[in-house]
Design a protein around this nucleic acid. Structure first.
Lengths: 252, 252
DNA sequence: CGTCTTCGTGTCAACCTGACGATAAGGGGT
DNA sequence: ACCCCTTATCGTCAGGTTGACACGAAGACG
């Protein structure tokens, strides 16, 4: 018998949460926003920011609200859905479905925790090896990092880690931090410049830094800018303009 | 205040469904399994097979059960999660969360609908242009097809459409059907053969067909075979062994 | 005015792709 | 047995892309 009847007979009504893997690049390293849990279960453990979806909320809205509550700011950057986990075997209190999201953003400061808010902080991903997270958040984080690494290969998403204007060297630093590798500056420069629609010259250059000044670019027309908090968060929102892709080096 | 308390205060408990984009290649075309709805809403309309998640079920279990109920068979092939579609604005009865899945399988027969079961049938994707599906299933289907097209580029998933043993020409036919393009048989053969770990010779050849007999292959060791109904459906279950990828031709 | 540092351009071999010719190996008709 | 048709597999070759690396450009600093 078909089970899409108007009144689901034995259908489960599940509590639904959103968890956010918020990544940024700072100090030359990939960092993730984590909170210290103040309540059971997993009290005192590190966890991804997140919480229950409220009635009348869309998923991106819930993700943005939780980020705002726990980091204290309206986060910029690119937000996309990552994957759904559950509902069994991931919360000791019972079945819970969680829709994980991925946020790629320029470094932004987190508000010091006020009163009962969970304390949020940036943690270097490479220093999390071995440390355990609450729930199944270690796996969700691993999936998010892998998604980010893969997306840099064939999309222009690396620019989501940069500000509005950036140099080719800053963009390269993003790739190096996310992939954990070193890239040849000259070859990277050639690929970035020669990819049509990737970078758009602003006409301005950096000033005051050490070494020769660098030309400033912004994200070119080929990429759909500002996927931001698009309520209809399209999966193909970032087109694959890097064709052929910029591949991460496999073996050293 | 943090909202991951043990008793969610105003947290929504949502009905959750799974919908399955089941794709196969038959008659040289990409086809999708659709059912005709027998109940409101969208009575009489075409829809993806799917239904409510039952208590105590995992998501892949629910997807497999719905497929079995509506197609009448235990489907083989590769099942993976596609994406979750938000609770708002997609079902006239109210908020419903649906976790869409993607099944890539060799052609299998669907049981003629028994009694009250919805009638399931294979429909060519290219003949669906313009026709509308129930709920937001048109968009889910589009996302699933796009995911399948993209995955063929850098993974060995095309073999999920084939049986245990197949020829290079059959594999090429899968690419041509999914991408809707023609590929040069000689260049495709070279790429498929020269990719390490992709194909493994069985030592046997086809018999009886027209033309020169072809060598039979099976999926090589580089790919994690049988992602099937893995309860812990890993997202990175299919490694990117096609490096550099096999790119679909862009513009003629 | 050197020197240091980083930015940007050029060069070159190795590799990969797309286009396409050539050969191999069956089946079917005469 | 032979020709012909079809499909599979192997080669060849020009053009584009990558990785490695030399070299000039342009500011900061002593």
């Amino acid at each position: 018998m078909s089970s899409r009847d108007s009144a689901p007979p034995g259908a489960a009504r599940l509590p639904v949460t959103v968890d956010v893997v918020a990544l940024t690049v700072a100090d030359g390293a990939l960092q993730v926003l984590l909170v210290t849990r103040l309540v059971e279960p997993f009290r005192g453990a590190l966890a991804l920011p997140g919480g229950f979806v409220l009635p009348g909320e869309t998923l991106p809205q819930a993700a943005a609200r939780e980020l705002a509550e726990e980091a204290g700011v309206e986060p910029p950057g690119h937000l996309e859905q990552l994957r759904t986990y559950g509902p069994l075997g991931r919360d000791p209190r019972g079945p819970v479905l969680t829709v994980a999201h991925l946020l790629l953003a320029p470094a932004f400061g987190v508000l010091a925790a006020g009163s009962d808010a969970e304390r949020a902080e940036w943690v270097r991903v490479d220093e999390l090896a071995g440390r355990s997270l609450a729930f199944d958040h270690a796996r969700i984080l691993a999936d998010g990092v892998e998604r980010a690494r893969a997306k840099l290969e064939y999309s222009t998403l690396a620019t989501a880690f940069c500000g509005a204007e950036f140099t080719v060297a800053q963009l390269r630093a993003v790739y190096e931090a996310v992939w954990g590798t070193r890239l040849d500056p000259r070859n990277f420069h050639r690929k970035a410049i020669s990819t049509p629609g990737f970078l758009e010259e602003t006409g301005r250059v950096t000033r005051g830094g050490t070494g020769r000044p660098a030309v400033l670019y912004r994200l070119g027309p080929a990429a759909g800018r500002a996927a931001g908090l698009d309520p209809d968060d399209a999966p193909a929102s970032v087109p694959a303009v890097l064709n052929p892709p910029l591949m991460r080096p496999s073996a050293p």
